[in-house]
Each structure stands twice: as C-alpha cells, then as structure tokens.
C-alpha cells in the first residue's frame, strides 16, 4: 500500500471518514505520520473553539474582578481561583462524572458526556479563568494618562471602554495571552486521557501516538512525530498572534512596542 493510499484512508480517520479499522501490523512511518496528523484535527478543534469563546468570558471576568460591585468582584475572583488553583486533569474527570450523573435526568445532557462538547466546556471555562487573570493584570496597568486623556475628550462609559480601555488592555496583555494560547493547545492533549471516551477510537494526536507506542513498544518514533506536529502548531500560533500584536501596537513608536516574549506557564 502506497503512502498516498494510507493518507486517503486514514487522513480523516479521527473524525470518522475513511477506513474504520486501525492498522494491525506493520505500522509504517507513513501510517504513524498520517494518523497522528489526523488526530491533530481534534487538538485544533478544541484549541480554536475554546480560545475564541473563552476570550469573551475572559474579558467579562477581568472586568468583573476589577469592578467595584462586591458581588461581581467576589464571583469573578472565585471563578478564577477555582480553575487556576486546581489541576485541569482533575477538572476534566470531575466534569465528565458530573455530566454522567446528570445524564439520567434529561436527554439534553447526552452530548455533554462525549468529548466534543463536555471537554470543550471545561477547556472554555479553564482558558477563560487563565486569560481572565492575564486581562485583569493588564487592566490594572492601563496607564493613568490614557484614561485622563479620554476623560478630557469627554468620553465616558461604553465609548471610553471601547475606544481606550479595551484596546490598551489587549495591547498590554497580548504577549502573555499568546503564551496562554500555546499552552491551551498543549492542554488539549489531556482530553482523551481523562475519562472522556474516544468513541470508535477517534482520538486526538496524543491518543494515536500512545496507541502506536503501546503497539510497537517503541516510543522513539510516534512521540517525536507528535512533537514535530506540535512545534509546527506552536510556530503557527506565534506568527498569527504576532501579526495581531503588530496591529494592536501600530500607533506606537517602534521602541515602545510590546515585545513578544514567551514565558512559561506549562501544565494547568
């Protein structure tokens, strides 16, 4: 079987298109590359959707934590503490079993026990908490002069937020937020190891990598392939976020622009 046939058979295996039976023997390099790459579809799905939806909740949480209303402030602080203070791995397990015990109550909860929705919700809340904290920090360091200038122009309320506070907050938070995005994508590999079942062996990249490592007793091929894919993904994220960073900073002179500097945040 040539490599093109393998790609045609297994390229979309992780979303249920193509050959159903996973390879039983041989395990060629081509098969490993194709299947692990096909698993990346799920990593990208979880990462992109959680990031896009989490962004809005994160803004809301950051504003809540900075607000003067004690109820909002307490609620946001607790939300951030709950998701940043506990391991994501345990959050996945808890959410899965929570949805599992809600299932008998109503058929509405059926999709929640499968990974595509249940895990997505956990990732959404998790990234909202982490980025909420980042945005809150940025909100605290919005320069005083900017706000005074806005006041002087007669802006207030929504227009001041939309035109001054929010863009400045994003600009200041962006390097840290890029970092958060990278590690969110890394965190998506936990999904299929934490209770959520891989239905019909449709899993993410790490699921297939560990499948091959288990079958061949040779971890030196599948994991480096996985690493290759993730380094590629990380580079894509960095360049995409770099473009946005350029746009956010376009009004500033060259030397006072925020530099994209990657920091560690790692496991959640």
């Amino acid at each position: 079987m040539s490599c093109w046939e393998t790609i045609a058979d297994y390229g979309l295996r992780s979303i249920g298109i193509g050959e159903r039976v996973l390879p039983r023997e041989g395990y060629t390099l081509c098969q490993q590359f194709t299947l692990i790459g096909s698993g990346m579809i799920w990593n990208i799905y979880f990462g992109v959707l959680a990031l896009c939806s989490g962004f809005f909740l994160a803004t809301a949480v950051a504003l809540g934590k900075a607000s003067k209303n004690p109820v909002l402030q307490k609620a946001s602080t607790w939300f951030i503490f709950l998701f940043r203070g506990s391991p994501l791995f345990i959050q996945f397990f808890f959410a899965y079993f929570l949805f599992l015990s809600l299932k008998p109550l109503s058929p509405i909860f059926d999709p929640f026990t499968s990974a595509w929705l249940g895990a997505l919700i956990v990732l959404f809340l998790n990234t909202a908490a982490y980025s909420g904290e980042i945005f809150y920090g940025a909100l605290q360091s919005v320069p005083r002069g900017d706000m005074e200038a806005a006041d002087a122009y007669g802006m207030s309320g929504w227009s001041r937020f939309k035109r001054v506070t929010w863009p400045t907050m994003l600009r200041l938070a962006w390097p840290a937020y890029t970092n958060e995005a990278i590690f969110l994508f890394h965190a998506t590999t936990l999904v299929y190891f934490s209770g959520f079942p891989a239905w019909q062996q449709r899993g993410d990249a790490l699921y297939y990598a560990s499948f091959f490592a288990d079958k061949t007793f040779n971890p030196f091929i599948p994991y480096p392939i996985l690493a290759f894919y993730f380094i590629l993904l990380t580079l894509c994220i960095i360049s995409l976020f770099g473009l946005i960073n350029r746009r956010l900073n376009r009004h500033l002179p060259q030397e006072s622009r925020a530099k994209m500097k990657l920091k560690l945040n790692i496991i959640r």
Partner: peptide, 20 residues
Amino acid sequence: IVRGVPDIAFFLFFVIALDQ
C-alpha cells in the same frame, strides 16, 4: 525542548524510554 511540545507527551515518552 519542553517549550514547544505538550508536557504530557514527555511524561508518556520518558516512562517507556527510560525503562527500555
């Protein structure tokens, strides 16, 4: 090396690799 790759991949990798 640890910055571009998910850490749990390292965990799964090293346990088998070290054993071998």
